[in-house]
Structures are given as structure tokens and as C-alpha cells.
Design a protein around this nucleic acid. Structure first.
Lengths: 230, 230
DNA sequence: ACATCTATTATGTATGCACATAATAACGTC
DNA sequence: GACGTTATTATGTGCATACATAATAGATGT
């Protein structure tokens, strides 16, 4: 297909006009039919280009009201949240894993509320992930075995909960939070660093149909960072 | 249009089959034409549904090879990176801002390499952002005035660089990194907290056509976090 | 002035068709 | 069997058309 009317070409041209202020933030842009005429292509093609830009947050579209340049183009950064083992291997390091503790208990109210359930006994796992035999991340996880009964019979010293859950308990919704937390005495012991260090921390909760599957706090060793292209 | 053959319906049905293990990770799924026949719709419609799922990372598609369920569905988390002022206001707090220092100098090699340019004089701004008059974030920013000449004449004590740049210097590519850093003595002074605290830190570089516009390190007050739904 | 209904309009989506493209499979030659 | 070539196939995309839907603007009635 001639590249000059591909939807990508149109997308890029529209993007250019916004960037070069030919179309200013807040202003309406011509409707799809007019643009189709201008670019010499079908409206479908323009539609796809504009839809892609709206998904990126550059444009705002409303039926009848038309398409306008977003007033404050909010950059969106998308991060991949891979299985820890894959993340370590992608760094060219050897992934190791050790289960530190596995017991049954009742989580505190904070965990319960994010899992959206009543107090009850759950599986509580604490584990340490290694990269080239050096500490990489420490994980503190609760699993509701009434929602995922199969988890009760898994030997989590052989496979990490991280990995088992991805393969065996898909979720419908979830919440993830990035924060910076002091390492603290317990983790400092395992990390072999100062308890005052700053640890990048990911707190995640996943649910199926509103019922909490698991809640996990992953504290990374000082120096860890997550990055992506914009 | 009858909801039973909308692309969303097909998307949801395919998603369900993957979640319920009717189609297992790594396995090929029927081709678009067959699915179209099964769902009683056009191939275009199936195409759109599958494309959406591939964008989400649930499916992997290759020409001729067909479509298969992703081996390790990598969750993607998308974060909005808003203007700080808007972020604070969204929290229901009053946004304040103060310029701490504005001078000209040459950034160190780390900054230069991420901005992809030779050593040269740039604008260096250090500022403090407040939420309800309490410290919220401290920003250390370099702006290359050879790329954005207009920035040289802006009074950054009146408008934050953050905001001015979004409105006046759109970028084509960029890089963003989240990490946890110790607050340090200088910031502790402004934050009024311990220098040993853990600060969530965002480091961002933006470029136009490969040329670095700005490089900024934003260190948030202890307790700050970023979150999103999965 | 006000509320309510109606017409208009721009985007959203479904369809059938055609052809492009990438990747693999099949085939032939040496 | 190891190669390069060609055929096949599934996805990728473009087009014309039709109709759906949301949101607004305009007309209407009180």
C-alpha cells in the first residue's frame, strides 16, 4: 500500500501539526471527513490515526463535539511488570530464589481492605530473590486460599509465588503502587546493607471479580530502578 | 449495532477463553477467518478484537505464524505523569512553588549523555514545590537553551519549568526512570526531615529529534507514592 | 424564560472486498 | 542433505458504504 495514505503517516502528520502549534492545545481540529479529503484517503483511515493519538492522550475526542488537541497532554509512561526471574535474566544475571517463611495467619486491616475481604486465615510467604547470588528483592506476600485453593498444596520453596500465580491465577483487576521505603532492620539483615538505605518498593494487589487473590510487597535492594521510554 | 458481534464482545470472549485455560499459554488460537465464521462477523471485527488484546500483551501475533496466547502475559502498568501542580490540586491541596536557584553552567557527563549532547552551557534550575505550604517535591533541572532558546527569557520564579516546558517545548522521545534515593542533606534542609529518609525519585529526559531538551530529577518527600490500576 | 422534543452532526463501529507483507512451508536443484 | 527459489498462508491495512450512538443545536410549546 502506498505509504502516503497509511494511517501511520496520517498519525505522524497530525502529531507534527500539534507539536508545531499549527493546531494549538484546546483547539478543535477538522473533522474526519475533511481530513480524509485532504489526505486523499478513506475516513476509516483517518479514524484509526486519530484514535491512536487519542489513546496516547494527545487528542480528545467526543461524538458530535469533534476532536480537539488535549489541553494538557498528560504523558503516560507504560511499564512492563515482568516475573522477577525474567527481569533478572534479562539483565544477564542468574536468578536465585529462597523461601524464608511460609505460614498461615490473618493479615492486618490494610492488607484486608486492599484485598477487599473479611478477616480470615491466608497463606503468608516471605521470600528472597537473588541475582548472581546477591540479594535483589525481598517479597512479603499474602494469598487467599479460599479464592485460589490450589495454592495451598504448592511447594513454594521450589517455585516462587510470583511465577506460580502468573501461570495459575489470572486476575481481572488489580492495583499497583510504586514507593520508596526505608530498608528497615529485617531486610537489611538479608540484603547485607544499612537499614537506613532507600528501597524501591512495589505494592500490588490482584483480584478476580472483586475478590482479592493476593497482596504483595516487593522491596528491592538499594540502587534498583524501573525505567521506560516515553 | 447488535452487541453480540461487537469487537469488544469478541475481545472479552477471547480473554475469557485465555483466562479459563480453554486456550493455554503458548498455544495457537484459530485464525481470524475461522473466528469470524464462529462469531458470525466480519474478519475486520475479529482483527480489531485480537489487535486490542495483543496491545495489552495477552496475545502475540505474527504474520503467517498466526496468533498465540502469550507465554508469560506481562502485565503492563500505565502511569500518568501530570504536571506537578495538577497532581497536587487533584489531591485537593493548594499548589505552591518556589525557585531556589537559577544559573548557567555545564552539567556533568551523566546528564550530558542522557541528553545526548556535547558539553555546553545550559540553564540550571533548582526549585521546590509545595502542597498546602508543606514541602512536596524538589526539582533539579537542566534546560538546553540552544534547543529551546525561548527558555532563556522566561521568569521561572513565576511559572515552574515543569509547566512552561509542557506548554512550550513538546518532545518527540524521552526516557523516564523511577527510583528510591536517600533524601540527603540539602533536600533534608528544605523538606525538614531526616537526610536518611527514602525519597521516591523520578528522573526524566526529553528530546526532540534526538536533541536533548531537558533533564530533570524530581525528588519527592518521604511517603509519596505513585499508583495505578492494572 | 424554561423545559422538552427533534434534527443535525461527528465520531464509533460493522461489513465485504481487495491487496500488501512477512513468515513459513514446499519444492527443486546441486 | 544443504542450499536458494517459489508458493502458500495468516495477519496488516485501505476503501466504500451503511448504520449506530452520543452530544449538541435548534425548534417548539407552555
Amino acid at each position: 500500500m502506498n505509504a502516503s495514505n497509511s494511517w501511520q503517516t496520517i498519525r505522524d502528520e497530525v502529531k507534527r501539526r500539534v507539536h508545531e502549534r499549527e493546531w494549538t492545545p484546546g483547539a478543535s481540529i477538522p473533522n474526519e471527513s475533511d481530513l480524509a479529503r485532504e489526505f486523499g484517503c478513506a475516513r476509516t483511515t483517518v479514524n484509526r490515526a486519530l484514535r491512536a493519538l487519542a489513546d496516547d492522550g494527545l487528542l480528545e475526542r467526543r461524538r458530535k463535539a469533534g476532536t480537539r488537541v488535549a489541553l494538557h497532554p498528560v504523558p503516560k509512561a507504560t511499564f512492563d511488570i515482568p516475573i522477577i526471574r525474567h527481569e533478572i535474566e534479562a539483565l544477564g544475571q542468574r536468578a536465585g530464589y529462597g523461601l524464608l517463611s511460609a505460614r498461615t495467619g490473618t493479615p492486618d486491616v490494610g492488607v484486608l481492605s486492599s484485598m477487599n475481604c473479611e478477616p480470615r486465615d491466608m497463606l503468608h510467604l516471605v521470600s528472597l530473590h537473588l541475582a548472581d547470588d546477591r540479594p535483589f528483592m525481598m517479597e512479603d506476600r499474602w494469598i487467599d486460599t479460599t479464592i485460589v485453593p490450589a495454592a495451598a498444596n504448592v511447594d513454594f520453596s521450589k517455585i516462587s509465588a510470583n511465577e506460580w500465580l502468573v501461570l495459575n491465577a489470572s486476575y481481572t483487576e488489580g492495583h499497583i503502587e510504586f514507593s520508596a521505603e526505608a530498608i528497615g532492620d529485617e531486610r537489611a539483615l538479608h540484603f547485607g546493607c544499612s537499614p537506613h538505605g532507600a528501597g524501591f518498593t512495589i505494592t500490588r494487589t490482584t483480584r478476580v471479580d472483586g475478590k482479592g487473590i493476593t497482596h504483595v510487597v516487593q522491596a528491592f535492594v538499594p540502587g534498583y530502578s524501573m525505567s521506560t521510554r516515553l
